[in-house]
Design a binder for these strands. Structure first.
Lengths: 179, 179
DNA sequence: CAGTTAGTATAACGCTTGTAACAGTAATCG
DNA sequence: CGATTACTGTTACAAGCGTTATACTAACTG
């Protein structure tokens, strides 16, 4: 998280953690395997985002996920996520797991109760706004955009039949309901 | 676009274009400067997205931008964009221009007639969905999500006063209006 | 035509990279 | 207690990196 993964080299990493490069290789086999295991940890942490957003501290639905993801404290993790995302798009063979889980860890579990289309839109909105926030640090503008998205969802649901409403509103309510 | 920029090295690039590494350095001064100029070209191409979406061939508003960006033909450019985006987030000092323009090239020109909040949401949605599409190649799901976003915008505007409606509807109509 | 410039090719330098080979130490186990 | 194993440390290697220096050729300029 501190140094990224693009120009990660074993020797500086080794001295940073008080050991030597060959020791790392002894434990991980190769640099690539080390990276793979790191990315596994990254995915684990991202998956806990869904769970943490359900916890007692965050109970306001999709806005909670946004609060979590846009928390400056999680900036380094998110930056790492997007860095790997970009590299993975270029080497899908190597990072296919990462790409698949980046989307489906959300679709399949925290948003399982929501239809795929609504969930896809919600994930994309959070992702896109997060990318904007990290790039411009213009928190006001981006936060307001998120709020407007939530308003859009509610306003739309308000003018649907109750059955239709479920599928849309669920995006914003699922997490609260489950919590 | 074919090989990415993360592990770009001069020698393979040079032979690929039929010359040698020192020749590249003679023309660009340094590798970093070469990269900077490449990124300038990338930005130029991305900026033409906004204009192309206004052209006669694409007249359906925000959906047109989506059609352009999600066109498989532009996949390599988009992948390069996201790769650089990820790297730029880690080195904002080096790529500050790129980060700024990635958002503001949209806010300031093609979407200048739209309020910043709506424009921010629209950009983020396209960006996020594009990231999903490139990662999962699940075009149906992502296309449907985009369509739902457009429905959300229209449905919301339909239940506002005419003045309120303008700011929301403009996101989807600006391009058509200007074209 | 002479001279300056732009462009290209070749060789080499110093440095970093991932990795392999080997030696030493601490802990575990029969 | 002796032996096997797990772990750490040091050295070395071959390859690739960005870059510099130098020589050569083609093209413009006065």
């Amino acid at each position: 998280m501190a140094h990224g993964i693009a120009d990660l080299s074993l020797r500086p990493l080794a001295v940073a953690i008080g050991t030597q490069a060959p020791v790392l290789l002894h434990h991980f086999g190769s640099k690539e395997q080390l990276v793979v295991e790191i990315l596994g940890r990254v995915r684990d942490r991202l998956r806990t985002i869904g769970r943490d957003a359900v916890s007692d501290q965050y109970r306001s639905g999709l806005g909670a996920v946004w609060a979590w993801a846009s928390d400056p404290e999680h900036g380094p993790l998110m930056r790492l996520f997007f860095e790997v995302y970009g590299l993975a798009l270029r080497r899908p063979d190597r990072y296919s797991d990462f790409l698949h889980h980046s989307v489906h860890d959300w679709l399949d579990e925290p948003l399982a109760a929501v239809d795929d289309i609504s969930a896809t839109l919600a994930i994309a909105t959070v992702t896109g706004l997060l990318l904007d926030l990290l790039a411009t640090k213009d928190r006001d503008r981006v936060d307001n955009a998120m709020q407007r998205f939530l308003i859009l969802l509610r306003s739309h649901a308000d003018h649907l039949t109750p059955t239709e409403r479920n599928s849309v509103n669920a995006v914003d309510e699922t997490i609260t309901i489950e919590g």
